[in-house]
Design a protein around this nucleic acid. Sequence first.
DNA 1: TTGATAACTACCTTAGTGTGTAGTTTATCT
DNA 2: AGATAAACTACACACTAAGGTAGTTATCAA
Lengths: 213, 213
Amino acid sequence: MMVKIAIIEDNVFARTAWATALSAEENFVVLESFCSCEEAIESEVIKKCNVILLDINLPGISGIKGAEILSGINSNALIIMISIQDDDKSIFGSLQAGAIGYLHKSVSPEELIEAIHLAVKGGSPMTPQIARKVLKSFHKFSPKYEDDKLTDKETAILNLLAEGKSYKKISEEIFLSVDGVKYHIRSIYEKLHVHSRAEAVSKGQKLRILTKW
Amino acid sequence: MMVKIAIIEDNVFARTAWATALSAEENFVVLESFCSCEEAIESEVIKKCNVILLDINLPGISGIKGAEILSGINSNALIIMISIQDDDKSIFGSLQAGAIGYLHKSVSPEELIEAIHLAVKGGSPMTPQIARKVLKSFHKFSPKYEDDKLTDKETAILNLLAEGKSYKKISEEIFLSVDGVKYHIRSIYEKLHVHSRAEAVSKGQKLRILTKW
DNA sequence: TTGATAACTACCTTAGTGTGTAGTTTATCT
DNA sequence: AGATAAACTACACACTAAGGTAGTTATCAA
């Protein structure tokens, strides 16, 4: 099984260096190298490839926007970002856009080959620091004050609020008076420092109080 | 610099096998092995260790709940889960609870040693499949129908809704009449199949339309 | 025993929300 | 040139939400 690769990178040196290195590997074939997302999007090659190496800093359509478009064209292609940045916006933006790997531009050809093998085998190549960053993004924010922790009942109600249920519906579900529900919602708002359902839900998600999966 | 390790695992064989394997490694010292979270929580050892290996399936307090409590006690300890499960609830629950790594129970002693080294160096040990699962959890859900995609304006308004802003405030911010704002919100609700702000925000987060970082 | 607090229940007011309906303007397609 | 749709603006109305205030238990600690 050949691994068909497309490269999108505006720098000529990097582009050719990667292409030659990868072509040397058995089972790898570089179908085409592009110097912009626009070019790649137009090409039929994208529909045929298994792996797309994508730079983030590109003239015109950015790598992030490009990843989104390309994964729309070929949702089976494994998109690996290659970037000099490692800020949140670049990393999480790329992941949101559909990337399954994120490498630093300083990768050696050997590491790049290894990364592609890993991706093909169902893994997600990334540098250790980025992996840590990604995992940490799941961590619950532990409220500084014990007082600001939501009780189990409050958490349950917050989840029901997120489902758009009215006070009345919630009161029926948890066997409480409507005002009883209000009582808890007041506490939730106070603890989260918000003044509306939407804000509470939003903050609940940000603080990972509401489960998202 | 010694790496001080604590092990929490109810199975005697696994526990002792890991302890002996890790003790053999230079710079590693296993401070103590516990067979339940309860024991570990009581112990002073937790406050002193750098790495905690934590089983998920434990009698009494589960590994997930345990991770939450332990990271509360020592937020600097690197918690690595070791589990036979790889369902979403186990993985993401652990990460939410504060774990920075997630390994399958079938790891070899060499892999375990390697994983701890990686964790200490700022990485996040996990199996390739789990890494992929985690990264995929960031992916935007591409709406099946083109019609259900939010426009840029709608997305912007949804973000403002998430901040709890009133129609009036939003209308001022985006230079539109209040009814103009309503017009877009109707579209948002229709596309997301919801009937309230809170639900829209919740769904927006689930679909990764709203940015969370 | 008293006092404090948590967990409700109850009522009231106001502002804001969700939805129906309808008209206007502008751009796009045929 | 005419039709169509998107992007508004406008108004009306029932309902809900948010917050103020106050009363009732039950529990627990001083």
